[in-house]
Design a protein around this nucleic acid. Structure first.
Lengths: 142, 142
DNA sequence: TATTGTTATACTCTATAACTATA
DNA sequence: TATAGTTATAGAGTATAACAATA
C-alpha cells in the first residue's frame, strides 16, 4: 500500500511551501503575498499583459485580480494603461519602482532555491526544472 | 532576467494544482477536500497517530485539525481512540470504511499521476519523486 | 507550568452576482 | 449579445484566544 509520501500532490504542495517559507520574511516586509510577487513576475515577462491574461497564467479570478492589481498599484509597483484598441481592457506595466522590486525579489527567489535545493546538484535542479516545465506546460497555457 | 517559469515556487504550485484538478471530481463526490484525503493517507501510514503529529506532517493547525477530524469522523472514515498513556491525546485510526476509501482514493491518485505525467517516462517520474523526497525530507519531518 | 484538544470568534482569501463600459 | 473590468457581498478555509482536562 502506498504512503502519503507517494502522493505527488502532497510532495508538490510541500515543496511549494518550503519555497514560500524561505520567502515569507522578505515578502512580508514588502507588503506582498506570493501571488502578488508572481503577478509582478508575469507583468515583467509580458509588459502590457491584460488582467484577464495575467489571471490565466496563475488561475486568478478576475475579481480577485482587480483586488490584487489595486494593491500593487497602491504600492506604486504597477500601472494600468488603457488599451487603445480595446478600451475595455487594461494593459499592465511595472513602474520603475516595480522593476527594481522585481530584480530584488528575483535575488531572494534564487537564494530560496539554493536553500531548498541544497542537497541537489546543479544538474539535478535543471532536470527537475525540465520535468516541471513539461508537467505544467512551458507555453504558459493550461 | 528570469521569468515566472523560472520560479520553482510557481512551478511546484502549478504542478500541485494539476494533480488536484484531476482529483477534484472524485473528492467532491466523496465530500472530501485534498487536505482530508492527505490526513486519511497519513493515518493509514501511521495508525494511532495523534492529531498533533498528523498536523506536523501537513502543517495543519490544531484547531483546524479538530475540524477536519470531526468531518472525517462524521463521514465514518476515522475513529478517535483515547491514548491510555496520555489521556490528553487521541490516537487516530481508519475505520473499515475508511480503509476501503483509502484504497479507492489511491487508485484515483495513481490515475491522476499517469495523466499529469503522461509526457514523462517511468524513469523520469521516479527521478522526480526522488528529488522531491530529498527536498521535502523523506523523514516526514520539516 | 506546559501540553492536547475543543469551542467560539475573527480574519484572510477568494468567488458570486449585479453592474458599467466597451466590443 | 458577449467581454473586460469593477463593486458589494457572501462564502470557504484558517487562525486567535480562552477554556477544560491531563501531564
Amino acid at each position: 500500500m502506498p504512503g502519503i509520501y507517494d502522493s505527488f500532490g502532497f510532495l508538490f504542495s510541500k515543496a511549494s511551501q518550503k519555497i514560500q517559507e524561505q520567502l515569507h520574511p522578505v515578502l512580508e516586509s514588502k507588503g506582498l503575498i506570493p501571488k502578488q510577487m508572481g503577478l509582478m513576475f508575469a507583468i515583467g515577462d509580458r509588459p502590457g499583459i491584460t488582467q484577464k491574461e495575467a489571471g490565466l497564467v496563475q488561475q486568478i479570478d478576475r475579481t480577485t485580480m482587480t483586488q490584487q492589481i489595486d494593491h500593487l498599484e497602491g504600492l506604486g509597483m504597477v500601472r494600468r494603461v488603457q488599451n487603445p484598441s480595446d478600451r475595455r481592457a487594461y494593459g499592465l506595466f511595472l513602474t520603475d519602482r516595480g522593476s527594481e522590486m522585481v530584480s530584488e525579489l528575483w535575488e531572494h527567489v534564487e537564494k530560496a532555491h539554493k536553500a531548498v535545493f541544497s542537497k541537489l546538484d546543479a544538474e539535478q535542479v535543471e532536470a527537475l526544472r525540465q520535468y516541471l516545465l513539461i508537467i505544467v506546460g512551458d507555453s504558459g497555457n493550461d
